[in-house]
Design a protein around this nucleic acid. Structure first.
Lengths: 344, 344
DNA sequence: TTGTATGCGTTATCAT
DNA sequence: ATGATAACGCATACAA
């Protein structure tokens, strides 16, 4: 169905002029009589004429659409990033096509494909936990197709990324715990193959090392799923032996931290007097928990904005000298200190 | 740029056959020799040929794309709905173009327009708080353009919507508070012009009436913004006079409930012994609060799925007899009882 | 100042 | 079994 959308053809027929004249009149081309122009514009208005963006895409080989691929939409951090993306895209007249992979590699492949089929002008990606082969992205980069990675960066040549300083964020969090007098700090590690997890882990290690504290390898436990239940189970195990357990937790994400707190409270530990907890991401609920959860805030909205701005620069083929040499933009995190780690 | 995408033209040239033959070969049309077919398919594979979806859209007047308009992306409920939408769309081979209005009417207008310009096949909408004029949607419906509203339904003819039973949800919540022995229940009302707010309010009124309790109009306070701060401010006022204040709160959303709890704790009330609190939406953080917040759960993911399924039915012009007569699908809510309202 | 013709990638109609 | 051509809606090089 056409839903009664008028085309320049309709206008041309009605006015007994050619389509090219209509086209030019509508776009204020030089060398067109004021009379015709007015006539055309008036009718266009009446008919509620709107240019067909699909036809334009085909003609100009440009869709004013960017693709966005995220692991999950229902995720405070990612939805915040998406929001930032949408804002900048909207401001520049771009549309946003959204795909979620549910952390599945196969779905990532499909999504990239259909987005390309739809001739997006560029792609913003945070890849899935499963993704270890990046050739589908490398292929794009080799073709010089505009891609910007956010949060999760692949280690492939010529990639452009926006990330937060995960190492520094983790370092500060652990440093803070140490400053509060905690000595036996364990780490709830995120999915192993994600660079963000590795960097947070390294920040944790470095902070301990710099403070002259020993790293206990058994106290670095992976939370591959990142659910409340997983974290509660892990916490129960680690804190089973009250005489030989950590006195603080630095968790790679807030859900894990929340699960830990629930579990610790159930066991009967007092927080932060006996156990200190710091999370990562500063989810919306962090401040509403009891005790309020200290967390490393990530500027998600800003990340979405930056990534989109970078992408649009690349699309417009005017990469800024300031951004291109490094190919990676690192945003600052901010440690939000609340009562879960603050011994007065 | 073309990014080296092969077209049927390229294949035709290389094989010295016509484009129509290529087109037919690729689509297993009858009346094409096995030899040619194999030849074409082989080369297509080699060249990594993929049909240009934009060209197809133009040709077939169908984009396999649906538009989604939400007030805010960073909102637990809406992001959950979006996720459900994306799942069903993906399963049916549809793309999702996402727009957020930031609760602005003007932006809603623009978004509808650009989505139409891009020839989406259908539209899923939850309109903004500001929207009181629905003519931009009515126009679409008059043209028989496929639209499905979710969560926020306009009162216009021929509209199709998916909502939850806000009245029943509210009714149950208040009934539960009454059953727990609370008598002086106040209501934190959502934005006045939203039907969902009105229905929740009515559920509140009816539950009180059915229990023979008086409705105190001063205890129905609007929270138009829906922020933590707003709710805390309101709570401080209402509960200032300990001798003449409510003994329970039924809030139209969980953020308001969370703000209330924070404020109440600060004032020194014990929850739920002195004051009971029930929220609406069952946000992710509800169970992590202290005390855990009772709330009316809305099936957001299901809503997204249902709305999309309905939309696709309309697009495919095979409306189910079961769904069309009513034009409105009502999903059940579920009261999740936690400690914020549970007197043992 | 305006019109004609061509092409973007694809499918469909009509020939051959 | 295959090819030529028009059409989807628009922009533009070239004519007039």
């Amino acid at each position: 169905m056409n839903f009664g959308q008028a085309t320049i053809k309709d206008i041309a027929k009605e006015l007994n002029i050619s389509v090219s004249t209509v086209s030019r009149a509508l776009k204020d081309y030089p060398g067109i009589s004021k009379k015709t122009k007015d006539k055309v514009k008036k009718l266009a208005e009446e008919l509620n004429y709107r240019p067909n963006a699909v036809a334009l895409s085909l003609r100009k080989n440009k869709s004013f659409t960017i693709g966005v691929i995220v692991p999950e939409i229902v995720h405070f951090f990612f939805s915040t990033v998406i929001s930032g993306i949408e804002e900048v895209a909207f401001k520049h007249g771009y549309n946003v096509v959204l795909c979620q992979t549910n952390e599945k590699f196969s779905r990532e492949i499909t999504s990239v494909q259909t987005l390309l089929d739809n001739r997006i002008d560029g792609l913003l990606v945070s890849f899935s936990k499963e993704t270890v082969d990046f050739s589908h992205f490398a292929d794009l980069l080799n073709k010089n197709f505009p891609v910007v990675f956010f949060d999760r960066t692949p280690d492939i040549p010529n990639s452009v990324s926006v990330i937060v300083d995960d190492h520094e964020g983790a370092y500060q969090a652990v440093q803070h715990l140490i400053a509060q007098g905690f000595q036996k700090i364990c780490h709830y590690l995120g999915p192993q193959n994600l660079p963000i997890s590795q960097k947070r882990l390294q920040g944790y290690r470095d902070a301990l090392a710099d403070a002259g504290l020993q790293v206990v390898e058994d106290w670095i436990v992976e939370c591959p799923i990142g659910s409340l239940e997983e974290s509660m189970g892990i916490t129960q195990k680690i804190f089973k032996d009250k005489n030989n357990c950590p006195d603080a937790i630095f968790a790679s994400n807030d859900i894990a931290a929340a699960g830990a707190i629930q579990s610790l409270k159930k066991i009967g530990f007092s927080i932060p007097d006996e156990i200190g907890v710091v999370g990562f991401s500063n989810w919306q609920f962090s401040e509403m928990m009891e005790p309020p959860l200290s967390s490393v805030a990530q500027p998600g909205f800003l990340m979405g904005e930056k990534a989109t701005e970078l992408l649009l620069e690349i699309i417009d083929e005017k990469p800024q000298l300031t951004t291109m040499p490094s190919k990676i933009e690192v945003l600052k995190t901010e440690l939000i200190i609340r009562n879960s780690s603050l011994r007065k």
